[in-house]
Simulated assay, not measured.
Amino acid sequence: VLFVKGCLEALALPYLAIVGSRNASPGGLQVAYQLAAEMSSMGFGICSGMAMGIDGAAHKACVDHQGRTIAVLGTGIEIIYPRKHRQLYHDIQQQGCILSEFWPDTGPFAGNFPKRNRIISGLSLGTLVVEACRKSGSLITARLAMEQGREVFAVPGSILGGYHQGCHDLLRDGAKLVETAADIVEELASLTAFHLEELKLCHHIQQGEICNLPFSSLLASVGYETTSIDAVVEHSGKTIDLVLEQMLELELQGWVIAVPGGYVRVKRS
């Protein structure tokens, strides 16, 4: 059983988990915030654990940019931990949700925090570790992501101080090196909402709403990553002339934006 508090619709997005050190450096916090904001602007949700440090920076970026975010707690959903994140706890629920497998009034017990990490990685298409020493709990999330068949990403850093040893170990083990959000989107392109939209078209609950969307079959052909015009034509089955005409209309209505290499969907149904 999972207990959820907040906006249930937030669960429908493709998610990226962003995790890292609780005692993050200022640079690490800045990187986590920037990458979370960029991924949010591309239509991804951000999943993390609402801990101090990297988790909090990732959630805060989504809140500040009106993006979706899920906080998977190591306590019950009625218990705010850490207390310093009281405002963040309430802000997350406006655009996203708080989630926990523990009974709502369960307090903070050390053993529950590593346990919840499998839910963070399981809800996400991939896990990004921004800053982590070799004994960081965020490496547990990365290992679980690998076991669950998810993608693993890591941000490299200085060899001094030991703040990035865990990330460097992940990179040696085959994690994808990340410098910008584009590095993540490139890897997740085939797994994103491009395919989730196809699934939603077949879902009886959503069918009526989808039919009311402008050029719904064409819109379902555009993902939240850069989708080439050739891919849109092939997936939609429409002629190139009709696709270009309708894509212009979708762009004017704010559903998609034209980017180098094609289009990106920026508005959800």
Results as ranks from 00 to 15, higher is better:
residue 235 H to Y: 14
residue 56 G to T: 12
residue 93 Q to C: 10
residue 58 A to W: 05
residue 247 M to W: 14
residue 90 H to A: 10
residue 48 S to D: 08
residue 159 I to W: 07
residue 238 K to D: 08
residue 190 S to L: 14
residue 106 T to Y: 04
residue 54 I to D: 06
residue 81 Y to G: 01
residue 109 F to H: 13
residue 112 N to P: 01
residue 19 V to K: 04
residue 104 P to V: 09
residue 100 S to I: 12
residue 224 Y to H: 12
residue 115 K to I: 00
residue 6 G to Y: 05
residue 172 R to N: 14
residue 227 T to D: 05
residue 27 G to F: 09
residue 18 I to K: 06
residue 161 G to D: 09
residue 176 K to R: 02
residue 48 S to Q: 10
residue 89 Y to L: 00
residue 53 G to D: 10
residue 180 T to E: 12
residue 203 H to E: 15
residue 55 D to E: 09
residue 41 S to W: 02
residue 101 E to S: 08
residue 224 Y to V: 11
residue 84 K to Y: 08
residue 228 S to Y: 06
residue 38 E to G: 02
residue 205 I to S: 05
residue 81 Y to T: 02
residue 76 G to C: 03
residue 208 G to I: 00
residue 77 I to M: 08
residue 185 V to A: 15
residue 23 N to T: 09
residue 23 N to G: 11
residue 133 C to K: 06
residue 144 L to Q: 13
residue 5 K to C: 13
residue 173 D to K: 11
residue 20 G to P: 04
residue 269 S to C: 03
residue 222 V to Q: 11
residue 15 Y to V: 03
residue 140 I to N: 14
residue 48 S to Y: 07
residue 76 G to H: 04
residue 186 E to K: 07
residue 231 A to S: 13
residue 19 V to S: 02
residue 141 T to M: 14
residue 39 M to C: 14
residue 82 P to N: 05
residue 97 C to K: 00
residue 110 A to P: 05
residue 34 Q to S: 14
residue 26 P to L: 10
residue 115 K to C: 00
residue 97 C to A: 15
residue 253 Q to L: 15
residue 148 Q to P: 07
residue 67 G to S: 09
residue 29 L to D: 07
residue 162 G to D: 06
residue 51 A to Y: 06
residue 54 I to Q: 08
residue 6 G to H: 08
residue 166 G to A: 11
residue 163 Y to F: 14
residue 46 I to N: 10
residue 154 A to Y: 04
residue 8 L to V: 09
residue 171 L to F: 12
residue 53 G to Q: 06
residue 70 I to V: 15
residue 239 T to I: 06
residue 74 G to N: 05
residue 106 T to N: 07
residue 163 Y to G: 00
residue 44 F to V: 00
residue 54 I to K: 05
residue 135 K to S: 10
residue 102 F to P: 05
residue 184 I to N: 13
residue 15 Y to F: 15
residue 94 Q to R: 15
residue 189 A to D: 12
residue 155 V to W: 01
residue 193 A to Y: 14
residue 65 H to E: 07
residue 169 D to P: 08
residue 238 K to W: 15
residue 202 C to H: 13
residue 86 R to G: 05
residue 31 V to A: 12
residue 2 L to C: 01
residue 24 A to T: 04
residue 233 V to N: 07
residue 81 Y to E: 10
residue 39 M to P: 01
residue 236 S to H: 11
residue 113 F to T: 02
residue 62 C to P: 09
residue 121 S to D: 09
residue 122 G to I: 08
residue 117 N to L: 14
residue 161 G to N: 10
residue 159 I to Y: 04
residue 223 G to E: 12
residue 67 G to M: 11
